[in-house]
Design a protein around this nucleic acid. Structure first.
Lengths: 210, 210
DNA sequence: TTTTATTTTAACCATATGGTTGAAACATAA
DNA sequence: TTATGTTTCAACCATATGGTTAAAATAAAA
């Protein structure tokens, strides 16, 4: 390992990318070190040369998966913007992030299901605390009669559900709608175009106008 | 194994129930036969006495998990009813089924993600083909201007997302909203009350009335 | 060239795990 | 009682897998 922490060698990155793919597809126990080595086109010894063990490698993949998406998403709710604008932006950018990392949600949620307390403090501090201003904003607008009459938490769950679930349910939807990969990609593309408007319209009550 | 296929011995059922819990929580590779035996309060030998192998046991759990929910849900869309009534009923009963089997969605989707072709023919025949009448109904009402202007598939994905995802994302929501188990149960109960109306209102355009 | 870092090869170890077996204890029914 | 089915226990096997090691080959840097 000649390089320092910042500039990783290309093989180290190749290994990490392969590990990311395999872990995200199969989970910690379902993944095989041999499969990771094969996908990275190196041999198993090198895995231990760069990362000491399966657990260590998994931990890096897991943490980076989370750091790669969650802070970005949370920050979208942390700006001082009018509700409608913020909402539209949130849905749009959230979808962009998930489209770029479509396997991360199921990966995180499966691992979290096996061990629900794993990220508790992180979730509480980096997500829970940082979204309360947004929930407050929702409640404030709700009191003014500007939103649909639902608890703020239910609204947020609705929004997140519609953004994330299509990616988690991809194999089901692809089959029952008889879509090949291209068709599903098109379906997601269509979704990205219409979902921001749809969510804004189902959350925010427009006063005045036609 | 004295009993016939219909009336399983109580231990056989106890084993199956334990296996269901462990497999649904940990997945196929994450599950340990010893843990199943412990939870069933029998020893490992008995697992093989009743079910020949881990794979065989898993297969039964997997298939029953699917058969326990999917046909029920699909049948809700297969009745000859007006859209609004059908929709309200669908959301209500779907939630009921998932509340009774909250771990099944993530379980199925994780296993499906590891092997996306696994249930392809089943999904196609038992789901895909049977929901086309519903999609047609949606399109017909859409042409009459009675629904929101979205492709039928997008509408169905929205609906399924809002029903299923809260259960998949439970560990996240529970943490960021700081809910204990009772509070989360209450949250789901609240959801069951309001979601049918909410979904009907966001899908069906009411003509006339104030 | 000399030195250092990277990569391969191959063999190997330790462990966990799924799986098996046989004997014995126990219960139940014929 | 006899026979059959159920359950436990303990020991054990085979395998896959994660992990390690040593030696050599190769490449790169000094």
């Amino acid at each position: 390992m000649k390089e320092n922490k910042e500039e990783q060698s290309s093989t180290e990155l190749k290994i990490f990318e392969a590990a990311r793919e395999v872990f995200q597809a199969k989970g910690l126990e379902g993944a095989r070190m041999q499969e990771i080595a094969d996908k990275a086109e190196i041999n198993k010894s090198l895995l231990h040369y760069y990362y000491r063990s399966k657990d260590k490698l998994f931990e890096k993949v897991y943490q980076l998966s989370i750091i790669r998406v969650i802070p970005q998403i949370v920050s979208l709710l942390n700006q001082d913007l009018p509700l409608e604008y913020k909402l539209r932006n949130f849905v749009d950018k959230y979808l962009e992030i998930i489209i770029a990392n479509p396997d991360i949600p199921l990966f995180i949620l499966h691992e979290l299901n096996k061990n629900p307390t794993r990220l508790k403090t992180f979730m509480l501090n980096e997500v829970g605390k940082k979204i309360t201003p947004f929930l407050e904003q929702l409640r404030k607008e709700s009191r003014k009669g500007n939103t649909v009459d639902l608890p703020a938490e239910q609204i947020l769950v609705n929004i997140m559900s519609m953004i994330i679930f299509p990616f988690i349910g991809k194999p089901v939807f692809q089959t029952i709608f008889e879509m090949d990969d291209a068709a599903f990609e098109q379906f997601i593309y269509e979704r990205k175009k219409l979902l921001p408007d749809y969510i804004v319209n189902t959350v925010i009550k427009k006063t005045g106008g036609s």
